[in-house]
Design a binder for these strands. Structure first.
Lengths: 125, 125
DNA sequence: TATTGTTATACTCTATAACTATA
DNA sequence: TATAGTTATAGAGTATAACAATA
């Protein structure tokens, strides 16, 4: 975990993002989300998310849009800049994780991948 | 990574520790370390470490001891309470990680373990 | 009444730069 | 001069509790 965490931090930093900001942007790659849903996915309180979104919105990486179906709610989405940056983070990170596993035999690698998929699926409600 | 991170946070919290504090205590289970060495292992700046150690020392979980060989340096070590807590964190965390992998076939599990060992060894200078 | 999101407040984590004491 | 650790400062992440607006 710490190996991956360090890798993630080292990848985010040169792009001007904290690891948490990078995470948030990458989560939004799948589409806009409300604050409650986003806080659940990121395992942080909604109040903590408010300030994170504020900072990213100030940098024009995300934007709050009104939810037409619920006037209390809003949808957080990536701006064009945010999407570009999110792709950069994602690509850079996966490239470095790939590099970590290049010296594994292909059969081992596929076993590991399958195991990780099962674990993540089981742990992601 | 995020699955493990969440698990780690959920494990530390009920024990009254932040994930970073839990990490620090667990690193010290291998023996006392100087500030520079500890900051290197934890991938944080020495100045960040100073305040972390301050807080843990205030709670009597770690203690600074003078380094007899270098009067500039100190050795950070666990107190008895700190050691007990570190073991609790470690045991609770490994138990939960174990639980994540119980539904893997034993052969898969050993492949994964071997792979993780190689990756960690390669990534830990 | 319950839920959505925000505000207010208090800590913790973290980095950068400047400093001190010692090597 | 170089290294070990600290201090000062600033910003970011986080939680809890209280709140406004809407459902």
């Amino acid at each position: 975990m710490h190996v991956l965490q360090d890798l993630y931090a080292e990848t985010s930093r040169p792009l001007g993002l904290t690891p948490q900001q990078a995470h948030l942007l990458c989560v939004l790659l799948d589409g806009p989300l409300g604050m409650t849903e986003l806080s659940r996915i990121m395992s942080i309180e909604r109040s903590s998310l408010t300030s994170m979104v504020d900072r990213l919105e100030r940098r024009s990486l995300v934007a709050r849009a009104a939810d037409p179906a619920d006037r209390r709610a809003c949808q957080i989405g990536l701006t064009d800049d945010g999407r570009t940056l999110a792709h950069e983070v994602h690509d850079a990170y996966t490239a470095r994780v790939d590099a970590l596993t290049t010296d594994l035999a292909p059969s081992h690698r596929s076993h590991v991948l399958a195991a990780v998929r099962r674990i993540v699926t089981a742990a992601t409600p």
